[in-house]
Design a protein around this nucleic acid. Structure first.
Length: 205
DNA sequence: ATACCGATTAACT
DNA sequence: GTTAATCGGTATA
C-alpha cells in the first residue's frame, strides 16, 4: 500500500479519476481515531461545463470556492441540512472538477465506524450512500478545504488516500447516470457514476 | 431580510 | 414504496 501521489489528482480527466478511485482506500485520523474504507462508488462532476456541478458556469460562492483549489483538496458540503457529502477536488487550481465519494467498504476501525453511525453491526450496504461515508469516516462539512495526504495538521488529523496495490477488474465496474441531478438537463444523462457491485480485487505481485 | 430547495437517510407501512 | 426530519446555500426582494 502506498499513498496516492499528488499527480493522481492533478490530471485533467475527472471522469477517469472517478473511475480509478474505485478500489482505493480512504483513511481518516481524527482525534487519534483511525478509520478506513475501500471506495466502491463514485461520481464525477466536470466543473464549469457540467450543469450538475456546483461550479457550473464558473460560479464561485463561499461554499464552492474550495472546488477551485488544487487537486487533492477535500470539498465537503451540507446536503438536506443533515448530511456532509465528501468530494475530492481534482485537476489544476482554477479548474473546479470534483469526485463525490458515494460508497465505501468498511476496513479498519469498524468499531469506531459502527459507533459513529449508531449501529451495532454492519450490513452489506452500511457504507453505501454519500452521507453514510462521511458519517462513518468522521468527515464533517467543516473539513471542507482540508488537504489530503497531509500529515502535519493540528492534532495529527489526516484524510488520506492509498493505493491498495490492486486493481479493479474493469468488467466489474458499472457506469450509469448520476443520482439526484434531474435538474441538470442533458447532463443528467451522462454516465458519470461508477460502482463495483462485487468488489473483487485482483491481486498484484 | 426572507423563501425555497437540495449530489439524503432512516424509519415507517 | 412512502415520507418526515432538518438547515446551510442561494436567489430573490
Amino acid at each position: 500500500m502506498s499513498l496516492l501521489p499528488c499527480s493522481f489528482f492533478l490530471r485533467p480527466d475527472v471522469v477517469q479519476i472517478a473511475r480509478e478511485l474505485l478500489g482505493k482506500k480512504i483513511i481518516t485520523r481524527f482525534a487519534g481515531e483511525i478509520t478506513s474504507g475501500v471506495i466502491c462508488e463514485t461520481e464525477a462532476y466536470a466543473g464549469v461545463t457540467d450543469r450538475a456541478s456546483h461550479a457550473y458556469g464558473g460560479r464561485r460562492t463561499a461554499r464552492t470556492e474550495v472546488m477551485y483549489a488544487l487537486g487533492g483538496t477535500a470539498y465537503v458540503y451540507l446536503c438536506y441540512g443533515i448530511h456532509s457529502l465528501f468530494n475530492i477536488v481534482t485537476s489544476d487550481a482554477g479548474t473546479p472538477h470534483a469526485v463525490l465519494i458515494r460508497g465505501i467498504i468498511p476496513a479498519e476501525g469498524t468499531e469506531i465506524m459502527l459507533r459513529r453511525s449508531g449501529k451495532t453491526k454492519f450490513t452489506h450496504d452500511s457504507g453505501i450512500g454519500p452521507g453514510k461515508v462521511s458519517k462513518m469516516l468522521g468527515i464533517h462539512y467543516s473539513h471542507s478545504g482540508f488537504i489530503l495526504n497531509q500529515f502535519d495538521n493540528p492534532g495529527n488529523n489526516t484524510i488520506s488516500l492509498e493505493d491498495m496495490g490492486t486493481d479493479i477488474d474493469p468488467d466489474k465496474i458499472t457506469a450509469g447516470p448520476r443520482v439526484g441531478v434531474d435538474y441538470a438537463g442533458t447532463d443528467a444523462l451522462l454516465p458519470y457514476r461508477f460502482m463495483v457491485q462485487e468488489l473483487i480485487l485482483h491481486s498484484k505481485p
